[in-house]
Amino acid sequence: MPVRPVSQAFDAHRTGSTRPARPAQLDDVQLNQMGSGLSPEQVSEMSHQSALALLHRVHESKDPALVTRVLTVVENEGLDIIAELWEKSEPETLPGMMWRLYTLRLWMRQNPESLSRFWRLGEPVVGAASAITGIDEAPTAENIAATADSILAGAFVGDFSVALQRASAFVMIEAAGMDLLAAREAHELPELEERRLADSDTRRRMAHISALRATASRLAQTGKDFRSGAALWKQGKLE
């Protein structure tokens, strides 16, 4: 299964209904106002308030049913409701981190086979960082899916900075694996002077290599965003 390309953080395609929904019972008035002609400043303030309210409510409750409901809001309601709240938030903000955590989970669950392969390539390169994620050296697709849930769940019921550190380590290892695979595939291509531009297979392979490298670059940046977010949270500056 090919990995979906990433955009701002991950290419977690929007699915499901666009109707207002209530992840962890966010205020209906807030959700109904999203995208209804509010100024950018008002939308930004609402994004920050909703992220903080959701995080604190679940953390204080620790109700397993509520945690499950929050984790599966994308499956049940579609990514649009999360996007309306947080997609445009800057990475050094709480809603920006929440958006990236949700899209990371969806991306991991959509591509478990491919990501397990990239992990096995990248883990020896990155090394000790793999211990942070809690993933085995040779993860299965089921391991990847379970880790996707545990990272997001940890953001709500554990130490938020630890969840961000786990997310950072995971995407950095995946990026390393993609870079290594791209290098191997590039090495296997015929020498430049032997390539025929009319060769559709060569063009396809070159496009695949280019996509891998671009995805790895964006993942590496997202990993840095997660790491920066973890540091800001520890300092009490992630808002």
Rank of each mutant, 00 (worst) to 15 (best):
R203D: 10
P40W: 08
E174Y: 00
R196K: 13
H187A: 15
E87F: 06
R184G: 08
E188Y: 04
G229E: 04
E123Q: 09
S150L: 03
S50G: 01
L115Y: 00
P112Y: 07
D201E: 15
R69N: 04
V58P: 06
S44N: 06
D136K: 13
A131M: 12
R100A: 05
E174M: 12
Q42D: 09
P5K: 01
I173E: 11
H59K: 15
D11S: 08
R109N: 06
S114A: 15
P124H: 05
M1Q: 07
A198L: 08
P95Q: 11
G158L: 05
A153H: 10
D11W: 02
K224N: 11
M46D: 01
E75W: 05
F118V: 01
N111D: 02
E194G: 03
K88S: 13
L54V: 14
L106Q: 12
D11T: 00
G134A: 12
L85T: 08
L54K: 10
D199E: 11
A148W: 06
K88N: 15
L66E: 01
R184A: 08
L197C: 07
Q25Y: 08
S168D: 05
K224P: 00
K234R: 14
Q110S: 10
T72S: 10
H59M: 00
V43F: 04
M172N: 15
T68W: 03
H208T: 08
A131Q: 13
I82H: 01
R203T: 06
A53D: 15
Q49V: 14
L55T: 13
E77F: 11
D136Y: 08
N76Q: 13
A83T: 01
E87N: 03
T222L: 12
E41A: 05
D225I: 02
M34H: 00
A231G: 10
A176T: 05
K237S: 04
Q25E: 13
R57I: 00
D11P: 01
Q30K: 11
D149Q: 06
R203I: 11
H13C: 10
F226H: 04
A169I: 05
A9W: 12
A148H: 02
W86F: 00
A207T: 07
A182N: 11
R205Q: 11
S150C: 09
S47A: 14
V74Y: 10
A65S: 03
T93C: 04
S150G: 00
L55D: 12
R213D: 07
A155R: 03
I132T: 15
A163T: 12
A146D: 15
W99H: 11
H56L: 09
E174A: 08
Q221H: 13
T222I: 11
L94C: 09
R195P: 05
I209H: 04
L181P: 06
K88V: 12
A53H: 14
A12M: 03
E193S: 10
T103W: 07
G78V: 01
I135N: 08
